[in-house]
Amino acid sequence: MKRGLVIVLTASLAFFSVVLVRFSIPSLLPYMVGRNGINTVMGGLLISFLWIGYTIFQIIGGLMVDRYGYNVVLYVLILIAVLNALYPIIITQYYLLLLVQFVMGSLLAITYVALISIVLSNYGRGGLGAGIYQSMFFLASSISIILSPLLFSINKYIPFIAFSTLVALSIIPLVKVPGNRRINSTITIGPENMGILGMGFIRLSSGFSYLGFLSWSTYYVVHVLNVSPSLSGLYAFLASIMGSAGAIIGGYLGDRAGYTWPSILSSLSLAIIVSIIPRSSVIYLLMLLMLLLGFFYGFYAAPSIAISKFTTNIGATSGFLNFMSQLGGSVSPYVIGFLLQYYNFTETLLAIGIISMVLVVIGAILLFNDRNLLNKIYRQ
């Protein structure tokens, strides 16, 4: 158990470093939208291109990890560190930046699947292990959101070089992690495995609501709360910081009580909170809602991915589940940017919330019709 915990922490620290990279560009939207001919639609597309690459390569990455072993992540981390260091050179070249965003998203997807597979395969308490791992997402995204605008305002090279260095350093302890678990991986998502498909819809809902809002959070506080761009990360920070506590609590509860209800109820809460955030005119209530948003996304994330341990092909299944959440995260930023051309944030986020609620209902129906999967969950 102690050895497994060390492996969980090693994989989690590597995940921490790549999440810093993932949220640096979205955090810089206040510096980019309105300059060099970039409007809100182009800004949303810039974020979506990373999520598109990230989404497409979830399943591909899962199959690669199952087939070639976990050590594939070492080579991918090297590529991420090098590519991220090039961002300040190309940041004003919009179409080249779009292409690089897609490539970066693809590499980040492979990294996510490899690292979560390492966690679920080497630690018996799958929910808690996934919770510790997912907590790094919220810590790193919070730090990236708060530091990237500040560091960029000093010098455009600083945030990218700093984050690339951390990614490179995370490779060192990963070298000692076993990486020889290889199987001929396939994945079947259909009538014979409705529960996984149902959980996929629940993750689609959460990605659509939370990731969409988080991607536009710095822009939101600048244009709605009239915060200066350099301090925008301090406010958007609230929307992610509580996710670490939520991930660990949700994972622990999932191990004890099953992974279904924590995932369903927290995803539904996310949709409701996103809908009502722009309706709040009281600053302290808005701060509380943002804190709850981060908490519930963490609470949902750990149990909903830990369900992968009940399948033979952990890499492919976790890849599919993360594919669904990132599908929501890749579409939502563009949808928000498009709607903002015609509506205000109140109407736009209400539409996002309603769509997310419908997806939760569909997922719950499919999940509770898979008795085989539910029996495995509640027998553990």
Results as ranks from 00 to 15, higher is better:
G61T: 12
Y54D: 14
M32R: 06
R182C: 14
Y219N: 10
L20K: 11
L327K: 09
I145V: 12
L231R: 13
G105V: 06
V222P: 01
S266W: 09
L74F: 01
L169I: 05
V175P: 00
A245P: 08
I336E: 04
M287D: 01
S135G: 13
I60N: 05
F310M: 08
I143P: 06
F23V: 10
L151W: 05
I336V: 07
D370R: 13
L107S: 12
I314Q: 03
R379V: 08
L174Q: 02
A302R: 00
I202M: 15
A130R: 00
G62I: 14
G246Y: 03
G198T: 11
G195N: 02
I154V: 15
N155E: 09
P191V: 12
N375Y: 01
T260V: 15
T10G: 08
H223Q: 00
Y297V: 04
L74Q: 04
Q101P: 05
I80E: 11
S141D: 02
P191M: 09
S12L: 07
I158A: 10
G127S: 09
S266T: 09
L96C: 05
T312H: 10
Q341M: 07
L13G: 03
T260C: 14
V65Q: 11
V41P: 04
G294A: 02
N180P: 02
Y54C: 14
A130W: 05
Q93P: 00
L74A: 03
I158T: 09
Y342Q: 14
A109F: 08
I183A: 14
Y334E: 05
I154M: 14
M42I: 02
F338E: 06
G37I: 07
L45G: 07
T348V: 10
P178G: 06
Q326M: 15
S356T: 01
L268T: 11
G44V: 08
I154W: 11
Q134M: 11
Y157H: 14
S135V: 09
A239R: 06
I158P: 06
Y284I: 01
S330I: 06
H223W: 03
R203A: 15
I116A: 08
V33Y: 05
F102Y: 14
F323A: 13
I248Y: 04
T10I: 09
V361T: 10
Y378F: 15
L83D: 09
G246F: 00
G127C: 13
S117I: 10
V6G: 02
I196A: 05
L98Y: 13
Y220K: 04
G254C: 13
R203Y: 15
L20M: 10
A11H: 04
F237P: 04
I25L: 11
L286D: 02
F102Q: 07
V224G: 00
F102I: 06
V82D: 03
S304V: 10
S142F: 00
M64A: 13
L97A: 08
L107A: 13
A316W: 07
P303A: 15
R256K: 12
R67G: 13
S206Y: 02
Y133Q: 02
